[in-house]
Design a protein around this nucleic acid. Sequence first.
RNA 1: CGGGGAGUAGCUCAGUCUGGUAGAGUGUCUGCUUUGGGAGCAGAAAGUCGCAGGUUCGAAUCCUGUCUCCCCGACCA
Length: 423
Amino acid sequence: MRFSNLLFNSLKESPKEAKIVSHQLMLRSSMIQQHTSGIYTWLPLGFKVLKNIEEIVRSNQDQIGCNEMLMSTIQSSDLWTKSGRYADYGKEMLRIKDRHDNELLYGPTNEEVITDLFSNYVNSYKGLPKYVYHIQWKFRDEIRPRFGVMRGREFLMKDAYSFDLDHDKAVKTYQTFFMCYLKTFKELGLQPIPVKAATGAIGGDLSHEFQILAKTGESELAYDPELVSQDLLEKSFDEITSMYSASDEMIDKSKSNVVIGRGIEVGHIFNFGTKYSEPLECYVLNNEGKKVTPYMGSYGIGVSRLTAAIIEAFHDDKGIKWPFNISPFKINIISSNDKFIDIAGELYDTLSKKYINISFDDRDLSLGRKIKDSELIGIPWSLIIGKNFDEKNEFEVINRSSGEKFFVNKQELENFQFEQYTP
RNA sequence: CGGGGAGUAGCUCAGUCUGGUAGAGUGUCUGCUUUGGGAGCAGAAAGUCGCAGGUUCGAAUCCUGUCUCCCCGACCA
């Protein structure tokens, strides 16, 4: 993408409504624009990031045999009345009436819809287990939206649902998703702390929140420091969950060797048994031909929230520092002045064949301004063609994260390991 | 929903107390000079002062109503 074609306008000052750094940087770098309280338009840069995160989440779901599908945003109230949640959900649910006066709602979650769908498609224990997910916009009419997309009313969520024959199998499934989540977050550059959670409105006997440590996190948590210092992917579910972690009121202050911090909840998983399958009359026939009710679980990841959470984790006073695979652009080509614009353009064409998502700042602006924008947006690499090219035929490559500079000739540039980037 | 604050140019904000021609910085546009870290000079465009009503000769400013946004709390991916 050439900057001359990009819908982008960096702001030097933060709009005053933004209180936390991720919100400020998202506004300053033209990632989002607020439409109304808690509802945002995703501008080109923000949308690219959102899709990159979505893709990482998607590939990890696919790896555990989870089926991607797409359920509607608008739902009928019928199923919710059946499950008993139409009344329970209260004002957080956005209720709508169509022209026939039918009661509809903008889905805040999908347990009802998927349970109903499942009961129509799977009738035998042989069809179990089944995992399905979708990545879809949700709406919860929060009392007080805040912090930009961190707590919006409209948000993009990956929600998966599992169906198992019995409780033990459902627990195994739960563990599979648990480990899948750790891997997903690691690919996003994050190491969240799995916190035992109260099961709340969704109910069930087993639930974990995945919290990213951040000063601006909304909830307090206490945890065993080993949950942060060790690679959890090398441990088993039992080893991990035997370490101490607790949130808010569940924190045991008498515990020693425990760290108190604040966290951003980026994922939440539940094992809730037959809480929905039973009232919605979802069953399969077992090997004796008898009706049994599947055991279910649901598994959420806040995709739009993750954009903000990742910025909270990776930024400095100059702007965002995107991990390579999340960044809207991987390499930003900058010509220091118009003299090099053609050479820069050729380089852009060449590199575009090798990498996806290269950008070329072809605007007629001073070098300083272009570098500032590149830093603000958080592009992992800037590639400058300027005086060093003139004098020594060298390109200058700057790493956003470390600030390191490399001077390379054309041959070296071709072999340069741009992917080796971690903030 | 309770408590607090704010709506004036794209953005940040002054002006409101004490009514009298709508302001600054930044950004935008044009021209020239520039071009290695948000360049310089000159010029220009840009706001029904959130909306509605009222008081007044006259309202951004005073009064009434209303809408929206933000912050603190209880709920949540």
